[in-house]
Every structure is written in C-alpha cells, then in structure tokens.
C-alpha cells in the first residue's frame, strides 16, 4: 500500500518530467550563465567565484 503511493507519485513525475525540469532547473541555470559564465569573463567577479557559486546553485 505504501509502495502504491510511491508508484503513483513517480508516475505523476514521469508524466510531467519536462515541466518539472523547466520549473526547477531554469532559474539555477540562468543564474549559472550570468554569474558563472558572463560575469567572470567580464572580470566583474574573480575566476575562483565559480567554486563558491556551484554549491549554491546545486543544492
């Protein structure tokens, strides 16, 4: 019975996987582009900043 609940939630996630990824991953990825790619290249933040940024973007 407990397992049935998990299977049901997993089915819901699988059905709307694309929307799930769009909803949760878009914001961190845009952050990564701006603070991890554009700004280090512009010299606005130091290169080592990506090491401090990744632990923030990921969890």
């Amino acid at each position: 019975m407990f397992w049935a609940l998990i299977v049901r939630d997993a089915t819901v996630v699988r059905r709307e996987l694309i929307f799930f990824l769009l909803r949760t991953a878009m914001q961190p990825l845009m952050f990564t582009v701006v603070f991890g790619f554009l700004m280090p290249r512009m010299g606005l933040v130091q290169r080592g900043y990506t090491a401090a940024l990744l632990p923030g973007v990921l969890p």
Binding site: D9, T32, T50
Partner: peptide, 29 residues
C-alpha cells in the same frame, strides 16, 4: 511517502543541473 518522493525529485533536479552547470562554467576548483 511525501518526503521520499520530494527527496527523489530534488535529487533528479540536482543531477540534471550539475553537468549543465559544469558545462557552462568550465572547470571548477
């Protein structure tokens, strides 16, 4: 059950973002 399914979704999102972030940022210390 709610906690477990939420946790699984969290891990999926992180596993999806990590390689992309590494790709965008280049090598990370």
């Amino acid at each position: 059950e709610k906690i477990i399914s939420g946790a699984v979704q969290g891990v999926i999102a992180a596993v999806f973002v990590l390689p992309l972030a590494r790709l965008i940022m280049g090598p990370i210390d």
